[in-house]
């Protein structure tokens, strides 16, 4: 009897793993249809201790992992999470996928898939992705990294849902406390009273609205080489 229960549990777990892998395969198959893309981006950042106005930019991506952002002024993006996750999901041998709970995110039924990297030497410790079971798109992801804390990413979709490309990506990132002596900054007269609500705020958000996607137009590699 005990052996029977054990076999049943083993079978159930393998079924769950199989289902998680199927979901990721479907996401990957969408991603595989994209060779490159460019899109107009509008970036809004609300990060403690960093004041920056919203900025327009153009984003370029080319497989496997070429990524570039072009803007007139200075823009900020999260260090992790923009293209790395999709790229990581294509490397099937590098992780184990385990199915989790289901959750409704913005009226869409999703299931949680936990991604556990096989290699402990990498930056990513754990990734949780919530996948829409109808359209097979990532609705939310939470990436826990070794040095950059946890990044929560919410995705909204528009015209390019068939490619799995979002129309808006909202990052919530951990920000480390930043304080430098006045004598170093030269700001010796500042007497700004700290807003008690913001005093201990260590989470920042970056919202990127994406539009005017141009997919598979054959972007040249030279676009991604930095100007010297």
């Amino acid at each position: 009897m005990k052996n029977l229960v054990f076999l049943f549990l083993l079978f159930s777990m393998s079924m769950y793993a199989q289902k998680a892998e199927d979901l990721i395969s479907k996401i990957n198959s969408k991603f595989e249809t994209i060779k490159d893309y460019s899109a107009d981006a509008y970036i809004k950042a609300d990060i403690p201790m960093l004041k920056i106005l919203p900025n327009a930019a153009v984003i370029y991506f080319k497989k496997k992992d070429k990524f570039k952002i072009e803007s007139k002024g200075i823009t900020v993006l999260p260090k992790q999470g923009f293209t790395e996750l999709n790229h990581f999901l294509t490397k099937k041998n590098d992780y184990i996928a385990v199915l989790g709970d289901s959750l409704v995110i913005r009226d869409r039924k999703t299931v949680l898939v936990n991604i556990i990297p096989n290699n402990s030497g990498g930056e990513m410790v754990l990734a949780k992705i919530w996948i829409d079971v109808k359209d097979f798109i990532i609705m939310r992801s939470q990436i826990t990294t070794k040095s950059n804390g946890t990044i929560l990413i919410d995705y909204s979709y528009g015209d390019q849902i068939k490619y799995g490309l979002p129309s808006e990506v909202k990052f919530e990132i951990d920000v480390k406390k930043f304080k430098i002596p006045k004598s170093v900054s030269g700001d010796i007269n500042s007497k700004k009273k700290e807003d008690p609500k913001k005093k201990n705020k260590t989470k920042g958000t970056i919202t990127i609205s994406l539009s005017n996607y141009k997919i598979n137009t054959g972007l040249k590699d030279s676009i991604f080489t930095e100007k010297k």
């Binding site: 990060i47 960093l50 803007s71 200075i74 950059n148």
Partner: peptide, 25 residues
């Protein structure tokens, strides 16, 4: 540096305006 642990700054950070500010300071 303390921001670049989690963020990436894009664009020409080292430009004439920044250099002028540093010189003035």
């Amino acid at each position: 540096a303390s921001f670049e642990q989690t963020l990436v700054f894009n664009g020409d950070i080292v430009n004439g305006n920044l250099v002028a500010f540093i010189i003035l300071q």
